[in-house]
């Protein structure tokens, strides 16, 4: 028995060691498997307001020389690091023209994490149409807890501005949105463009519930069941 003890003890130690090793492996593999989080952000608004240029400015860091009307949707991604965590911002640059949207719309809003509404500060109609865009967004079951921002583009055309900042601000407040007035063309405003998406990414990162949200796909729509974390450490 006395001899048996050390043996059994050794065996237990071995098994424990093996367990520890396997648990370490599991932990490591789990760490590896938990890949970069993806934040799906859709950019919507009237045609020719500069959605493509804005997304291109954010993801490519430059203003595109020539752009064609977006057909369906264009996908752009940018990896960012927020508080040590690598996050992939997946920007869906949607088509503004109805004929190029058609049956795509439901795909835009599926599992969307944030919505960017864009209008052209030099076109009052694009600002007035925002109501329609918001209605469309709400009509596709996008929860009110999904962050939304309002972006007034083409601020560099100072002489042609038709939408006053106050009006836009009132509208943004009424719809519980942040307002950004920027220009995708003006290189000085590039940081402002980045800050739109970074701000959203920070807010989304702060809303940890997004990871654990219960995705019900029976009806193909997302329902958010958990409340957002009240402790927000968003730098913006």
């Amino acid at each position: 028995m006395a001899n048996e003890f050390p043996v059994s003890r050794e065996g237990t130690a071995n098994s424990r060691h093996a367990n520890l090793t396997s648990s370490l492996d599991l932990s490591t593999s789990l760490d590896h498997s938990v890949q970069t989080r993806i934040f799906k952000i859709i950019v919507i608004g009237d045609s020719n307001v500069g959605k493509t240029c804005l997304t291109f400015r954010f993801t490519g860091g430059a203003f595109p020389c020539k752009t064609e009307a977006t057909i369906g949707v264009d996908f752009r991604e940018k990896a960012v690091e927020i508080e040590g965590e690598k996050i992939k911002v997946q920007v869906w640059d949607t088509a503004g023209q109805e004929r190029f949207r058609k049956s795509m719309v439901e795909h835009y809003y599926r599992n969307v994490h944030a919505v960017v509404f864009v209008y052209d500060v030099t076109k009052m109609a694009s600002f007035q149409n925002l109501k329609t865009w918001i209605q469309e967004c709400n009509g596709h079951g996008v929860s009110s807890s999904v962050p939304r921002v309002l972006v007034g583009n083409k601020c560099d055309l100072v002489e042609q501005i038709q939408v006053p900042s106050n009006t836009a601000l009132k509208f943004a407040d009424a719809h519980n949105m942040l307002l950004f007035e920027t220009s995708a063309k003006d290189p000085k405003e590039s940081q402002n463009v980045d800050s739109i998406f970074m701000c959203l990414a920070c807010r989304l990162k702060a809303q940890k519930y997004l990871i654990y949200r219960d995705v019900e796909r029976e009806d193909g729509r997302v329902r958010l069941k958990h409340q957002p974390d009240p402790k927000s450490n968003c730098p913006c």
């Binding site: 057909i71 369906g72 949707v73 996908f75 997946q90 869906w92 190029f100 058609k102 049956s103 795509m104 795909h107 835009y108 599926r110 599992n111």
Partner: peptide
């Protein structure tokens, strides 16, 4: 066709 492709791509990404 392009729209169909885009639709499929969007579905795939979703």
């Amino acid at each position: 066709r392009w729209l169909e492709e885009k639709k499929e791509e969007a579905e795939r990404i979703n």
